[in-house]
Design a protein around this nucleic acid. Structure first.
Lengths: 119, 119
DNA sequence: TATAATTATCGTAATTATACGATGATTATA
DNA sequence: TATAATCATCGTATAATTACGATAATTATA
């Protein structure tokens, strides 16, 4: 597996252009806001939500909630489907699966058994 | 455990002031940049790094790297200890442990077996 | 068909993040 | 003691984020 990319990557130990690193950063960034965590949590509990369901329980303007939904949608974590006047929001199974795997990898990376009190 | 706060929280299902939610958002936000992920990854591999070790392998100005280190330090994920002219950076065991637990919780939250193709 | 309901988008303001060079502070070395 | 090395901080520029109200677009209802 010593393709040129791998050689270059392992030579520095760091490759900021690595797609999987970039994707991990994108996903964690999307999680990195209490409102978006709350939205995802509610979707985990309720399967299906309309935009109004979020605005009912969030102390934010409807336009702001819509913006957060857009962020989650654009990075593939949720879907939004028009149903009449309303939009039905759901977790996107493939995105959530990817997130899940990514988080598992991170948990693996930050394995607490490897920690040393160095200083 | 029906304190007024809990009643209010469970009535909406969402509490943005919940410290654990806020902390989860803070931690994921800190992870949400490729450079900071790279820094943490390198620390996982090498135990100990001086600031110069990062600037050697990152295509960024020293002041920028220092800023990213500050972010990670301020949310408790790394420590920085002066050793002569240099500063020794390490993973902060307690912060990493907290991160670990937080990520485990998230993995739990986004349990892929619960996913339904709703729309 | 007129009105109401729902949501996305636009415009905008304020704040935060990201990056750089310059500089200061501290410690080691000549 | 003068100089070099290392790193943090300051000042600053630019971009991105977060939030709001207003409004447009679409669909349902009277």
């Amino acid at each position: 597996m010593n393709t040129p990319e791998n050689i270059e990557r392992t030579s520095t130990g760091i490759d900021l252009e690595n797609p999987s690193t970039r994707r991990a950063a994108q996903l964690t960034k999307a999680l990195g806001h209490p409102v978006r965590l709350a939205i995802l949590k509610l979707l985990c509990e309720r399967d299906t939500c309309f935009c109004g369901d979020f605005t009912d329980v969030l102390p934010l303007a409807q336009s702001t909630v819509s913006q957060h939904l857009k962020v989650l949608k654009e990075c593939g974590l949720i879907t939004g489907t028009s149903q009449g006047v309303r939009t039905c929001y759901c977790l996107d199974p493939s995105g959530i699966q990817e997130l899940h795997q990514n988080l598992v990898n991170l948990v693996d990376t930050f394995d607490t058994s490897n920690l040393s009190d160095c200083c």
